[in-house]
Design a protein around this nucleic acid. Structure first.
Lengths: 170, 170
DNA sequence: ATTTACTTTCTGAAATTACTGAAAGTTACT
DNA sequence: AGTAACTTTCAGTAATTTCAGAAAGTAAAT
């Protein structure tokens, strides 16, 4: 139920949030009908939800030999899923803005107001590019590296300073 | 207009997105009426929007001596604003889930299914805690440190390995 | 105390989004 | 080909969200 309430904050709707939560905490894969029953929603709704969750690559279909039904289960572990949600949201929330800003920055400003507007848009563009680049590079790290990095926490500041010293000495 | 379309993805609604965008690209602070005119929306709607944007701490009121009207302007630069949006969203999207999970993990599991559900919830809890901790610690870095870190990009992997070597040698 | 210049709150209408249940589609077996 | 066991689509309905405009509130100036 909580996943439902949070669903819309996370980028999908109530029912889809519930479906996702249900599949995560349920050990065995479930059929569409089981999902509909468990959540008391219509069979058609489940079908839509499945399609949506597949488009986020959060669930996968499984077949059980000798059974014609389709069984659904989470695709990957919690980290994988979080990554997918993160990526998908970047695609929806950042990328379109980034490309609009790029277009706009190509236009010549014809007066002071437009100049200011462009300056501000430039700032936003910078910010979004930095964040985008950074996040894609974090994903290139091995899980162990990532883990170390996270554990490091604000100690990262010291490591950066350290690195600076070393390179200056050389 | 684009800010309007994106508004709902960013956590508020169309009008509020437009208002925020308008205030960012406009050099001088604006009155509520100017905002309403510029965007062709009702005065009442602007009032609601202002309240909402203030709750996100994205805009601030300014008074011009000898003028009774309230003028509105962005609160801080682009980085500040992005930070606020980020923080606010964490508060809405992560914190409630985190506290629910904590409560749930205190309950004793009475059968195998519940045990599995708890295991999964534990995973999510870990993930969210790590992310939360990490993000709050990033914010503790000085802007220069942060900038260096971002510029480092995937080179961060090498720095982590470097740090490991140094500490092993000691 | 009244007027003036503003801001906020609230109500119901309009627009959008989500959901159901039935019909249509698909697939695999006979 | 026919049928059984499923899944998907879709039209209409229900629920939610957004919004304008009117009414109420506030505070300074007269």
């Amino acid at each position: 139920m909580h996943c439902g309430e949070m669903g819309s904050r996370w980028g999908f709707n109530r029912t889809i949030g519930q479906m996702c939560g249900l599949l995560i905490i349920t050990k065995n894969p479930m059929t569409a009908n089981e999902i509909a029953d468990a959540l008391s929603i219509s069979r058609g709704n489940v079908s839509m939800g499945i399609k949506e969750l597949q488009s986020w690559q959060l669930i996968k279909v499984q077949h059980i030999p000798g059974d014609r039904k389709e069984y659904y289960a989470p695709a990957g572990d919690i980290w994988d899923m979080a990554n997918r949600v993160f990526e998908e949201r970047k695609k929806r929330e950042i990328d379109p803005t980034l490309s609009l800003l790029r277009d706009n920055l190509l236009d010549e400003a014809v007066n002071e107001d437009e100049l200011y507007a462009q300056k501000q848009m430039g700032e936003i563009h910078n910010l979004l590019e930095t964040v985008t680049k950074w996040s894609s590079e974090l994903q290139r790290l091995t899980p162990e590296q990532l883990n170390k990095l996270m554990k490091l926490g604000s100690g990262i500041g010291k490591v950066i300073d350290l690195k600076d010293k070393i390179f200056k000495k050389e």
